[in-house]
Design a protein around this nucleic acid. Structure first.
Lengths: 209, 209
DNA sequence: TGAGTTCTGTACCGTATGATACAGATATCG
DNA sequence: CGATATCTGTATCATACGGTACAGAACTCA
């Protein structure tokens, strides 16, 4: 168990020597490293170098390698996930989906290099032999499916989609394309082409107009 | 460079002591291991155990770890890829796409466990820091895109698709859904649900009937 | 102040890793 | 047969790995 601060409740003053690094900033550095190299190919030397910490500090704050990864992915969901999902809030379904996919493309080709999605480019490799990774992956997928499904249901209510539409499958389709966009990004596909694919999907899902 | 047989041209009789194992069978065992554990998390001990060979034999026949992986993926493409693509040959587009996706689902939930697609579940993790992996991934994607695109073009010629259809983007969409199906499989999604998603895509792409 | 507590940095531990040297075994070739 | 070539198995190499012990530093609390 990490002896120290979970990301949320941060007691203002703790008893002993205060830590000399920023928790979230270090976690971001770890995330970048895992994102770039994947879980298994990332060593603690890679991590401590990127985080600019020495090993005991890392272990005290985050736990072992697996725990660091879990925390990093959790932060990824909280940050990149929130940014992405709020694009879904736009009033017209067409804009909502387009915005959502544009946000995915932004993240996948973002300022840290064209590294795709940290989840769907690094978790699947571990999910084959690690039950923890499999669960993390399944949960992330379910979360995304759920958010999109909710948005599609709202579109049905607003008569933007036919009442007979298979909302669940449609949502899973959109999630799937989002995944494929980020894998393509990691393979080197330029933004322009990713945008074309995204537009094609939006065109298929929301026909009328 | 491996001193010995490339998978194709196999000289009937070589000079020294003949090898006591089957090349393709050993390669299959390596593929299973990489498929299950990913590249980085697979050690040579894992490989030699699965292949039932000792290290020098592996190195002599296949080269170092990276070369073994490349050969395994190449074999995966040749075997699973061919099976999958020949489903595309069915006369009606609807059946062709359905058969294609069904083959993907078969592979991804197949007899070796629900391990998804060996390419899109293990290569992306390495593609972030290995240019060789990035290229392999890009090439595999391009190959799949190309095959589907050709099938869609045939459908346009047969008036199963509108002449105005954006065949390239549509093909990339189908490829993307295929990827997402196999990632979902690795996350534990049951076949039934994967089938529903596949049917939804087919329904979207080929409207009339 | 001094006791108690937590963080930092060095140095280290045991093991697993990718890769190879070498000797013996088994084949072809002349 | 001997010469040559390739494969197999053992034993080993240097290094990189995840993880930790320990001493000193820096803070709070009384």
């Amino acid at each position: 168990m990490p002896t120290s601060a979970p990301p949320d409740a941060r007691p203002a003053r703790r008893r002993g020597r205060p830590r000399q690094f920023d928790y979230d900033q270090a976690l971001d550095a770890a995330l970048q490293t895992f994102w770039h190299r994947g879980y298994a190919a990332t060593s603690l030397d890679h991590l401590t170098a990127a985080m600019r910490l020495n090993r005991p500090s890392v272990y005290a704050a985050f736990g072992n390698k697996e725990a660091i990864y879990a925390a990093a992915i959790q932060r990824y969901v909280a940050v990149a996930g929130r940014e992405t999902l709020q694009a879904l809030a736009r009033p017209r379904l067409r804009d909502a989906l387009a915005g959502f996919l544009a946000a995915i493309i932004d993240t996948a080709t973002g300022r840290y290099g064209p590294n795709g999605c940290a989840i769907c480019c690094t978790l699947p490799a571990e999910a084959g032999h690690s039950e923890a990774a499999r669960r993390q992956l399944a949960e992330a997928i379910a979360q995304l499916d759920g958010a999109i499904q909710a948005r599609l249901r709202a579109a049905v209510a607003a008569r933007e989609l036919a009442a007979a539409a298979d909302v669940a499958s449609l949502a899973q389709l959109v999630t799937g394309v989002a995944f494929s966009l980020s894998i393509r990004a990691r393979a080197g596909t330029p933004r322009r082409e990713l945008g074309r694919i995204a537009r094609a999907l939006v065109g298929l899902v929301v026909r009328g107009d």
